[in-house]
Write a protein that binds this DNA or RNA. Sequence first.
DNA 1: ATATTTGCAAAGCGTTTGCACGGTT
DNA 2: AACCGTGCAAACGCTTTGCAAATAT
Lengths: 162, 162
Amino acid sequence: MESRIERLCIERGLKMTGQRRVVARVLSEAGDHPDVEELYRRASALDQHISIATVYRTVRLFEEQGILERRDFGGGRARYEPTEDGPHYHLIDVDTGRVIEFQDAEHERLMHAIAARLGFEVVSLRLELFGRRLPRSNEDRDARPARGGAARSGNTAEGASR
Amino acid sequence: MESRIERLCIERGLKMTGQRRVVARVLSEAGDHPDVEELYRRASALDQHISIATVYRTVRLFEEQGILERRDFGGGRARYEPTEDGPHYHLIDVDTGRVIEFQDAEHERLMHAIAARLGFEVVSLRLELFGRRLPRSNEDRDARPARGGAARSGNTAEGASR
DNA sequence: ATATTTGCAAAGCGTTTGCACGGTT
DNA sequence: AACCGTGCAAACGCTTTGCAAATAT
């Protein structure tokens, strides 16, 4: 069965080898932000005939095609996630390494305002919050995205950055 | 004559070798965000008796002492700047590689609000704006920090990140 | 059939480190 | 004098690459 990313590859006319199919599937099914080593591990579980060099090459190809986005959360290894619709940012739990995605309209606005007052237009930006879980108060018992933004969480393979 | 950073080293009781003195001076005089190779180049100009390994070690030591801050603007090399009073961020001109520093009180507030609504407190954060110079309009002829924040600019040694 | 992709191992890059020597306190 | 910092070169971790064999179109 065709994974979402495999479909994107075909649309773009990429040659679909067994290895690419497997990497595409692993990425399609990943809810987190795996690094190359982790992708290699997951891909190997589905198909022994993959070398880590191919994972590197595939990941680079997919990034050039706009299928994947490379993230650098510090710690020396690049991490990847399928390209999403709109811009979103990451909050990294410094204790667990868990990555929570969020977006915020006000932040978008503010970034453009700041750039504008310096005489620039925003080409791209990088925002990462490193935070520590707050003891939740009594009247804030439910997990729910509060007004003003949305959040989605996903686990990461490993701990926080250096 | 004692550089600002050399004074900080002495305050902290660091052993002041010739090499550290030179690196301290180079850093004190740097208005930009040099990487290790660039620091090594500038230090070597003042004193041949420096190896790049020592620059690496010194820069790490200074960072541990809170004298220096390591930045990662992408591109694989770490870059350094003397620790400043308050938090500030960077806008990188994608065409020239110039780095402009800025701060913004509203942004601080917003970051804490976003973290709070996700149930976190901010430990640290990373914000970088990549932008392109806007053609300046007629009625905006002077360079001046606009209301709401301050900016200071400094050149970098090299171009923008990948 | 032909151009691309793969695996392997070697190389590359920024950074760190073991060791013997040299300098600072 | 004791210790710590240094230079050199080797090692490191992640990533890329040259080459010959394998594969997709």
